[in-house]
Amino acid sequence: MKQELRVAAYAVCVRDDEMLLARWVDREGARRWTLPGGGMDHGEEPVRTVVREVEEETGYLAEPTALLGIDSIRRSRLRRLAGPGDFQGLRIVYEVRITGGALRPETGGSTDLAAWHPLASVPTLDRVELVDIGLQLWRERPPVGRSRLTDPANG
């Protein structure tokens, strides 16, 4: 069975009771809100990945202020080949603050829009699970950086 590992870094950015999200477009054209972020380039430091990805997807310059946690997912489909296999995604989640830039959508990437959303409305959005994981890590700051939402012991 083919295996694939993807390491990515994501940003939780909350300001004035609003959360910065990017709208991800999947291969079929469905759109769901996600944390700004994405895959690490070979040799890239995770902190640089999250800074680069926030700028690419939102137009903002960001500074990581805390490592919130690391999340791991498994799927039975490979991302790159879109076929059967064993996919594992390792997602490094940082808290970031905006230091400059201006809000704008990404062009030619995997997202098509970036926006601030009131924290109270986030649960009503059409979103990926990573948004809930990031918010839970941000709110609870678990000592080992593991989300209770994906902890098998909470199954």
Rank of each mutant, 00 (worst) to 15 (best):
D112W: 09
D112P: 05
L113F: 11
L113Q: 14
A114G: 06
A114I: 03
A114E: 14
A114T: 11
H117P: 02
H117F: 15
H117D: 02
H117Q: 12
P118I: 01
P118T: 01
L119Q: 06
A120F: 01
A120R: 07
A120T: 09
A120W: 04
A120L: 10
S121F: 10
S121G: 03
S121K: 12
V122H: 00
V122W: 11
P123V: 03
P123I: 04
T124L: 15
T124G: 11
L125S: 13
L125H: 00
L125W: 00
L125Q: 04
D126A: 11
D126W: 04
D126C: 02
R127I: 09
R127T: 07
R127M: 06
V128Y: 14
V128A: 14
V128C: 04
V128R: 14
E129K: 14
E129S: 10
L130E: 09
L130I: 13
L130Q: 12
L130T: 03
L130H: 05
L130R: 00
V131T: 05
V131Q: 13
V131I: 03
V131G: 05
V131Y: 11
V131F: 09
V131R: 00
D132K: 01
D132M: 10
D132Y: 10
D132A: 13
I133S: 10
G134D: 09
L135K: 10
L135H: 09
Q136M: 11
L137Q: 03
L137D: 08
L137A: 10
W138T: 01
W138V: 04
W138C: 03
W138A: 09
W138N: 06
R139H: 02
R139Y: 01
R139P: 01
R139A: 14
E140P: 05
E140S: 13
R141V: 06
R141A: 05
R141G: 08
R141W: 02
P142F: 03
P142C: 01
P142I: 07
P143V: 07
V144K: 15
V144E: 12
